Computed example of a mutant assay.
Amino acid sequence: MEPDYWRYHKATGCPVPHAKALFAEMPALWQQRVLQAIEHDPPGRLLSDPIERDPQWADIINAAKLEAEQTAAEAGHTGRGRCHVVWRVQADILAQRHGVVWFSPARMNPGASFD
């Protein structure tokens, strides 16, 4: 069986040395979510936090996303880099109000570039 960091490298395109180091430093919950995403998400696509597909949390995560998008727009965040603001606010809403740890696309795909 392939080592987990190798599977992570193959799924994300993250260079092998970086994938190995990053995977080793990930907290257990992050590792677990990444491995679940690798099993579920089609090869060649960005990994998404599997909790987004959990019926218990999907509506809450989506509502937090909509609220975060509105908050970012009201604060004047438009254009490049806006997604990072939205994801940070979304993660904060989920953590503070619901006790949910959610990993953004940037966290799930460290080798990818987002506007």
Results as ranks from 00 to 15, higher is better:
3 P>C: 00
3 P>S: 10
4 D>R: 08
5 Y>C: 06
6 W>T: 03
7 R>I: 03
8 Y>A: 02
10 K>S: 05
11 A>I: 05
12 T>G: 00
12 T>P: 03
14 C>R: 07
14 C>F: 14
16 V>A: 12
16 V>T: 11
19 A>S: 13
20 K>Q: 15
21 A>W: 08
23 F>S: 06
23 F>N: 03
27 P>C: 07
27 P>N: 14
27 P>E: 13
31 Q>V: 04
31 Q>N: 12
31 Q>W: 04
32 Q>V: 01
36 Q>I: 12
37 A>C: 08
38 I>H: 01
38 I>C: 02
44 G>W: 06
48 S>R: 14
49 D>Q: 07
51 I>S: 02
53 R>D: 10
55 P>W: 04
55 P>E: 10
55 P>I: 09
56 Q>H: 14
56 Q>K: 15
57 W>P: 05
57 W>Y: 15
58 A>L: 05
60 I>A: 14
64 A>G: 05
65 K>P: 00
65 K>C: 12
66 L>Y: 09
66 L>N: 11
67 E>F: 01
67 E>M: 10
70 Q>E: 15
71 T>F: 10
77 H>D: 07
79 G>Q: 07
80 R>D: 08
81 G>H: 11
84 H>M: 13
84 H>P: 00
84 H>A: 14
84 H>C: 06
85 V>S: 02
86 V>M: 03
86 V>H: 01
87 W>E: 15
92 D>M: 12
93 I>E: 00
94 L>C: 07
96 Q>R: 15
96 Q>W: 03
97 R>G: 12
99 G>E: 10
100 V>A: 05
100 V>Q: 05
102 W>D: 00
104 S>N: 08
104 S>W: 02
106 A>P: 04
109 N>D: 13
109 N>I: 11
109 N>R: 09
110 P>T: 03
111 G>E: 03
113 S>P: 00
